[in-house]
Amino acid sequence: MSAVTSPARPASSGMSARTINRIVIYGLLALFAIFYLMPLFVMLVTSFKTMDEIQNGNMLALPQSPTIEPWFKAWGETCVGLTCAGIKGYFWNSIKMVVPAVLISTLLGALNGYVLTKWRFRGHTLVFAMMLFACFIPFQSVLLPMATILGSLGRFGATLQNATGFNFGLGNSTVNLVFVHVVYGLGFTTLFFRNYYEAFPTELVKAAQVDGASFFQIFRRIMLPNSMPIFVVTVIYQFTNIWNDFLFASAYAGTGDVMPMTVALNNVVNTSTGVVEYNVNMAAAMIAALPTLIVYVVAGRYFVRGLMAGAVKG
């Protein structure tokens, strides 16, 4: 009998101890989650309130007469500096910069990873170590040298313009930002792809060589189609970083119509004329944050799916 009852008693006392542990753990987690989500919540509710409600009400209260007017105003009418045409132009500036920068840096990183693992050459570890160094450069330290380089590129573009009537995008602020983000993103994208391809079966590359595939055919037909998980990870990482970048954007495209979203948002909030329209500012900030949220939600699913496909691969 004792053999039957004795395991039951510690189990019941253990249950209560475990329950207390659970309560403490989940309580703490909930507390941190609330802390973390509070600003987002305030932003979201404020962006749907009227100015009266903001001035007279509680910051945490839900909007009593919800309105999406501030969102329209932020998108199409609010003043950025002296022009009052909303943030939509700057939103597209960011898109035009982010998409090429993400794709180019990701593809080049994949190519680097492919070469560094499957086409090894003398000194490949040194090259990789130097590329890794790019991950740890404080970006403030490269602002001035990069400005000089961009200046030279701009002058070269002007020369081309005179000679051929076309400057090939050199000197264009968006192109400059793409260039800067590709250069400083390469360290990370190369790191991601190199580590992924390190575990990628080399026999596949050898088989493709015997089958007569060329360097780029192997890359395009064998490597890239089997890189979905790391491709998505890299795209999420690069998209978030480049979209959110303020330092390079303000340094190299900080004025006029070429500003990316982050700089424009700063100018909306810092505007000194009239009443501070918190609801419009909050809506503008939400719009600025939306693309990264969407990338996480959409690509995150592909990311998990990609991992699963990799797990059952033979």
Binding site: A207, V210, N226, K313, G314
Partner: peptide, 30 residues
């Protein structure tokens, strides 16, 4: 000569089948 010019075919230890292609695609790739 380059492997593809040697008129050889090779079966690998891990089979080295291209995971993104069908069986027919694998056989026809060369």
């Amino acid at each position: 000569l380059h492997p593809s010019k040697r008129d050889i075919a090779m079966v690998f230890q891990s089979y080295a089948l291209y995971p993104n292609m069908t069986v027919a695609g694998n056989i026809a790739f060369g």
